[in-house]
């Protein structure tokens, strides 16, 4: 099947997936026995008229299927995700503010995963059953079992608190997205590092890069161990293949055998994991964002859940669902590119 047809088909399939997602999320969030209108109206002291006004605005007194109809109508006809009763803004506005922060954090986390996880996985395979291999495997196990919040706190202590106590200056800032006294860069993409680079804003660039290092490294640890192990085992698999022996027999340097012939094939399963990890990190950055005061989707999601902010819950879930499906598609396409034997569809 041609690539274009494959992509078109997958994008069309996205529609029923997202509709199904909205139905399930809508139902689950609305059947919780609670009265969000009271909380949205201002809590226990809100008077009945205010509560009724909120119920009217959000159709809370209508049957569930009618509420769902109104939600889908506004989404499809106007592109509106509804007004968040907690933030007071349209959910799409909230997402525009919070999503770039999480996206930027995830991008940097993935960058760390790639530049650390893949090379170490390869090296571990090359040095199989030797000391470096054992050390790397221990580290990968730590990565999978270490609680993210604990790692985050540890990094704050090691890179911020202790250096400040001993040398009077932290190595890296412990929280936030940019220095308190640095103006954020002009909003172009919402990614501080990219926007500051595009606007040649050196203070904003260095400050935003410095601020993202610790949270991104913390976040990357969640998948780093897995990537290291997957890369190791697929390299081992590849290195035992006949064509690798042929390449060696032809007199190629070991370096060329490994990197030109082996790594590309070994990357195939790793790419799949990376793609899924990206989606997972986007949705699962809550703890990291809390520890480092990172104003992203994680914190937004928590607040929405605690206040039963239906529009925000729906918006967040739709977005994450869309990202997951998109990442799946991209991984499949990349898969086909890496391995010409694979035919799409």
């Amino acid at each position: 099947m041609k690539l274009r047809t494959f992509i078109a088909r997958r994008l069309l399939l996205l529609i029923p997936v997202l509709i199904g997602l909205t139905m399930i999320t809508f139902t689950i969030s609305h059947i919780i026995p609670a009265d969000p209108a009271q909380a949205w109206a201002g809590g226990d002291k809100a008077d009945q008229a205010q509560v009724e006004a909120i119920e009217e605005e959000y159709h809370l007194n209508e049957p569930l299927h009618v509420q769902y109809y109104y939600y889908m109508r506004d989404l499809l006809r106007y592109g509106e995700m509804g007004r968040s009763p907690v933030s007071g803004r349209d959910v799409s506005e909230d997402i525009k503010e919070y999503f770039p922060a999480t996206f930027e954090l995830t991008l940097f986390a993935m960058f760390f995963v790639i530049i650390i996880g893949i090379p170490t996985g390869i090296f571990s395979a090359i040095k199989r059953n030797k000391v470096p291999d054992h050390l790397i495997r221990v580290v990968s196990l730590m990565g999978s079992s270490m609680p993210i919040f604990w790692l985050g706190l540890l990094l704050q202590l090691v890179f911020a608190q202790w250096p400040a106590l001993h040398w009077g200056q932290p190595i890296l800032p412990p929280s936030g997205r940019i220095g308190t006294f640095i103006d954020p860069p002009t909003h172009l993409t919402g990614l501080f590092t990219v926007d500051s680079l595009l606007t040649l804003n050196a203070p904003a660039f260095t400050s935003s890069v410095a601020h993202i290092i610790l949270p991104a490294f913390t976040l990357c640890f969640a998948v780093l161990g897995t990537i290291m192990r997957v890369m190791r085992s697929s390299m081992l698999d590849v290195m035992n293949q006949e064509y690798m022996k042929t390449a060696r027999a032809k007199g190629l340097k070991e370096k060329d055998v490994i990197y030109k012939h082996g790594v590309k094939n070994a990357l195939i399963p790793t790419t799949t994991i990376l793609g899924m990890a990206f989606g997972g990190l986007l949705g699962g950055a809550v703890l990291t964002e809390s520890i480092f005061g990172w104003p992203g989707m994680g914190r937004y999601a928590i607040t929405s859940i605690l206040f039963l902010d239906f529009p925000a819950i729906m918006g967040f879930t739709l977005l994450m669902g869309f990202v997951f499906v998109l990442m799946n598609l991209l991984v499949d396409i990349l898969y086909a590119y890496l391995d010409p034997r694979i035919r799409l569809g």
Binding site: Q161, L165, P174, S290, I291, G293
Partner: peptide
Amino acid sequence: KSVSELTTRIINLEL
């Protein structure tokens, strides 16, 4: 500033 994690607030205060 809004910082939800207590330990982070304490570190920021110390620094």
